[in-house]
Simulated scan of single mutants.
Amino acid sequence: MASCKCEQNLESQYQELQKVFDKYRTVQGALIPLLQEAQEIFGYLPGDVMKKISREIGVPFSKTFGVATFYSQFHLKPRGRNIIRLCQGTACHVRGAAKVFEAVSNDLGVDRNETTEDRRYTLETVACLGACGLAPVMMVNDDTHGRLTPDKAIAEIKKYD
């Protein structure tokens, strides 16, 4: 996950967003890059930010919202500092991924695609991480952890506290 500037205060975030608007003002088809940079600034795409983007570039909000919800790279809710992706592919499933997910979910107190209240973790499931030989497998941020048991998964996650 790219580091966001979400620790800044709201006023400075909007100032930063204004610089992004200035950068793309004359660029045709700039909606996706604008959304990407706005998400980098805020850590996610708040509704008021998407409305401001729509107004600035003169596109209907429905189009901006449609693009933001179509692409999985965009997030409409705040995310955790650590993104946990648990593979649910066939090899992982056969080797106990459901039990790993259940244990991690219970330990963190969140379900699929939810973020802990302290915003330390966001728990996601993915169809495949491409590491079937390590099944069951998860990624925490950019780190891959394989041959998991429920207890091993929880222990690995605790290292990111």
Rank of each mutant, 00 (worst) to 15 (best):
50 M>T: 14
77 K>R: 01
5 K>I: 08
156 E>T: 04
1 M>E: 07
60 P>H: 12
113 N>S: 09
63 K>L: 14
160 Y>S: 13
99 K>S: 05
17 L>F: 10
153 A>V: 02
73 Q>L: 11
9 N>Q: 14
37 E>Q: 15
104 V>Q: 05
12 S>I: 13
43 G>H: 06
132 C>L: 02
125 T>G: 08
22 D>H: 13
66 G>C: 06
130 G>L: 01
101 F>G: 07
129 L>Y: 08
99 K>N: 14
68 A>N: 05
157 I>E: 03
141 N>I: 03
159 K>T: 11
124 E>L: 11
52 K>R: 15
99 K>G: 06
50 M>E: 05
127 A>W: 06
139 M>I: 00
3 S>T: 12
36 Q>M: 06
17 L>R: 00
96 G>M: 07
48 D>L: 13
9 N>K: 09
113 N>C: 07
29 G>Q: 11
75 H>Y: 13
112 R>T: 09
129 L>N: 01
128 C>L: 05
114 E>M: 12
79 R>M: 08
91 A>L: 10
144 T>N: 06
3 S>H: 15
153 A>I: 02
91 A>H: 08
78 P>M: 11
19 K>R: 12
58 G>E: 04
11 E>M: 14
43 G>C: 13
11 E>Q: 11
126 V>M: 03
81 R>W: 06
117 E>F: 13
3 S>C: 06
87 C>S: 03
88 Q>F: 03
45 L>E: 12
58 G>R: 08
87 C>A: 05
